[in-house]
Write a protein that binds this DNA or RNA. Structure first.
Lengths: 146, 146
DNA sequence: ACAATCCGGACAAACCCGGTCCGGATTGCA
DNA sequence: TGCAATCCGGACCGGGTTTGTCCGGATTGT
């Protein structure tokens, strides 16, 4: 299924919520807006902060703020921030030990074009493309129904 | 990391071994050539057979045979055969229940262009591209060293 | 000085995947 | 006709990864 981590999905949702307004939002605020658990949101924002996609402002009246507009953040960047380097197999970038008997496997290295193609596809999509309308508002509405 | 199942890697290796000669090979034979465990190879070949990528011949003197030349088998087909439909998120093709509070999530459906791009990238690569030389021979050599 | 907030890591639980095994069905050969 | 070889389908369990949570420490505005 080429599974994408669920954390990455959360990251996109959190970024969309952050993109709704240009103000500083705290982690509990964003958790309430997205309907996700607060520690989980904090964890995702932490990762995004390390990657430089959001700015974390410490201290009282602190919170998180977008480092760039959503239209300048690609999906590839988010995936890298949450899941690490984009690669389909473990036999990449000198990960020795992953293949036991396949030390001389001729397939090794042949995946590179595929990986590049995937990276290009993911770099062509921005978070703004994924959440053109106000995602946060829709989530609030969904929560109101429950 | 966009992890691809290890079974899919095995499938590529098994297909490459099958592509070496146009004869019928039994599962134990292929297991010995690829250096993989026999039940695992059998499982992979079973999946590939269900997908129509290989023909399984029953009875004595039976075995497996390529249904098509490797140059006509795309990586996307192998992935679909082993892992199921190619999609980055679970919020696809009416998988209700995956998203609990996000029944009306506006992001839903927006992943389709991304998924299509991934599919196209994976459909552009054939197994013959991944294993141009005799992979089986290299595996035998690696086993001889051990 | 205090309160609010982010930061970093450690931790248990749940889920999924990898790998194995078994019995049944089917076919070729003696 | 009987036997052996082989694929087929499913169930099963252990290990590992991911998920989600929590806690103490650092930092900053009031």
């Amino acid at each position: 299924m080429l599974r994408l981590s669920r954390m990455t999905d959360y990251a996109v949702v959190a970024l969309s919520a952050l993109g709704g307004a240009e103000a500083v939002r705290t982690a509990p605020e964003l958790a309430a807006e997205t309907g996700l658990a607060e520690p989980t949101v904090a964890k995702v924002l932490k990762l995004l902060g390390q990657a430089g996609l959001v700015d974390g402002l410490r201290g009282a009246r602190g919170g998180y703020r977008l480092a760039r507009p959503l239209s300048a953040v690609t999906l590839a960047e988010v995936i890298v921030a949450i899941e690490g380097p984009i690669a389909l197999t473990a036999c990449v970038d000198g990960a020795s030990g992953g293949c036991d008997t396949e030390a001389t496997c001729p397939i090794r290295g042949r995946w590179d074009p595929v990986n590049d193609a995937i990276r290009n596809a993911l770099s062509a999509v921005t978070i703004a493309d994924l959440a053109p309308t106000s995602c946060a508002a829709a989530h609030r509405a969904a929560l109101a129904l429950a």
